[in-house]
Design a protein around this nucleic acid. Structure first.
Lengths: 198, 198, 198, 198
DNA sequence: CATGAATGAGAATTCATTCAT
DNA sequence: CATGAATGAATTCTCATTCAT
């Protein structure tokens, strides 16, 4: 009758996310997760075979939510540079609105706890950007470096920046944000290429 | 004979570094560290009061080594851009030669295990760059963004790149490395400023 | 339609028997029993108040089936020795045809899990033999030892033999089986008494 | 200095034996074993990798003690029948003096908890009797049945009898014990063979 | 009646830390 | 100083049992 117990699986994931983000995986007992999720310890094991599976599933869950969010703010009718800027902005915004997910991602993207299988299944958060990069390369707008290098440079910079926002608590200033995303754009754009904006 | 104690302390740190880099902190028992360091478990406790202190000390130890390494390849008689490029290159080289330290740094820089006190005491790896940034700002070579933003953008990009090198195992190619560091430079340099090199 | 409930009860008992015989009581979860019996876990609790009651009821169930089987091959018109031999043979045959029951009996006859009450209610498997023993004693055919001692010697020997058959998988050979049962008979028969057969 | 902590391993085995004999393996938590043995829970794990290994080692420990005891009361300068009787008597006496070991043996000799490897390594308790059987067969004193059958008949009967003694608490009566062992001897002896005693 | 999702008490096991040698 | 056997608190995970559907 009531939807209170909507989804125990999701409750477990959310509880794990927030607890792990601030305490770390191993400092977070299953009992604490259960309590925070308002479910029994045993219930967690109905949805995840063990604690490691729980965190791997959480990894996928977070990845998917980030990616979905990025896709939403994606418009096709803009110049490459503008699209790029919008994507970065939405990453920043998302990270600020979901600091736990960023923190979780930073700590566990390179952790031995996340299996190779999970990483591969999850793909890169930056996946949606790839299409944009192809378009940009077709327009000869990018530097002559392998796409994966460009991707890594951009994601490193933008996530780093997002972390800074979260850490310092500086409120978003649209103008400054533009400068920052443009800076990142400068990193990968072909110097000879005259951007439509510049 | 006097150096023996230092040796044991360092042996513990090194053993911890390599084990933690591949297994994670909590999957690495003190007994395993002791075995790898060829010392007794109890001996570790003569140098570190507990496991947490051990990892915090390791954090400082790694930070210091990275910073020292960066300082070594630092020449004052170069243009800002060239100095910058050299610094980035030495970071990359160092990371490739010491993958464990990079992996450790990535995983624990944001971990709740590293106390705030340690982070502050340790300062930023990028500390030596700050002087360079001041010089560059005096020359009006940098974008008009807060220094900490520029720092964060650069460190995010370069560490990300280093990780890529480690992960793919691509051998260093001096020419490509230059393109990459220049790209990072483009991110922070003032567009209007005509670099001495360009 | 009326028999359905009996069916579920029996299905639970049979599933328990086969699972416990090979895994042991505590390595056999109720959920596994339910699955094997093709009923719900909760259903088991409609027939047995708890797991311990289940195994105690199983004990009685098995005992009864063994006893019934022994009674079937019982003819009154034979000499004591021949009757005795027939009884032992039918025990052996039964054990070979129902290895799970033998295995179960062996493991739980002495287990603290089977309550004293159950053991008493169940009586001895050898119960039907008792009448035979009385007849034999009346004929002065048995050794001058307490009946319970004779009973214990016979049951120990015959069950041990049955286990050997089950374990080695040797097929039944009527002639050898006669020699074996006669050996057991020799154990309890009065040496001075001249058997009708010999 | 003090021998109080003589042997923690043995203390664990003895504690396990007495607890398991009366409660069963799964009703006996490691914590209870540790308490009874006056050692820490963790200490048990220094000597046994897991609870299953503990019980398997206990099985071997008990087997060895039983066998050793049987060997002690073994004199070569007796007739086959007398030797046989002495062996059986010493089994009975041992079982009465060590009811826990008998109870343990009965419950776990056929348990899935005892691995095949352990059973094989442990050999049969009756092993020492085998030599005696060979001697007896050479003298044509035994029935024409496979040795393993004779062995199984004897061990089944004698252990069953020992259990009866333990259960009823009847004190040992030398004369009755002789009648009982002779009865068992009658089971395997060649009827045609004129025993040296009879 | 039948079901099986949910529960949490309880068990096995690990591992940081101590301390007698 | 160095050691590692001993310890037990803490954690993960299982599973008998309940109860809403």
């Amino acid at each position: 009758m009531k939807e209170i117990t909507t989804d125990k699986r999701q409750a477990a994931l959310e509880a794990t996310l927030s607890l792990i983000a601030e305490q770390g995986f191993h400092a977070t007992p299953m009992s604490q997760i259960a309590k925070k999720a308002n479910i029994g310890v045993g219930t967690i094991y109905r949805y995840f075979s063990c604690k490691e599976e729980l965190i791997n599933e959480l990894y996928l869950y977070v990845k998917q939510r980030m990616t979905e969010s990025m896709m939403r703010n994606f418009k096709q009718d803009q110049s490459v540079q503008e699209s790029f800027r919008e994507v970065l902005k939405s990453i920043i915004r998302y990270a600020i609105e979901h600091p736990d997910e960023l923190s979780f991602g930073e700590q566990y993207a390179n952790s031995p706890l996340i299996t190779q299988a999970t990483k591969e299944h999850g793909g890169q958060i930056m996946e949606p950007i790839k299409g944009l990069f192809c378009r940009a390369q077709a327009e000869n707008a990018l530097k002559d470096l392998p796409q994966e290098v460009l991707l890594v440079l951009v994601s490193g910079a933008v996530l780093s920046l997002a972390k800074l926002y979260n850490f310092t608590g500086v409120p978003l200033d649209e103008e400054r944000l533009c400068m920052e995303t443009d800076a990142i754009w400068d990193m990968i754009r072909n110097r000879e290429f005259v951007s439509s904006k510049a």
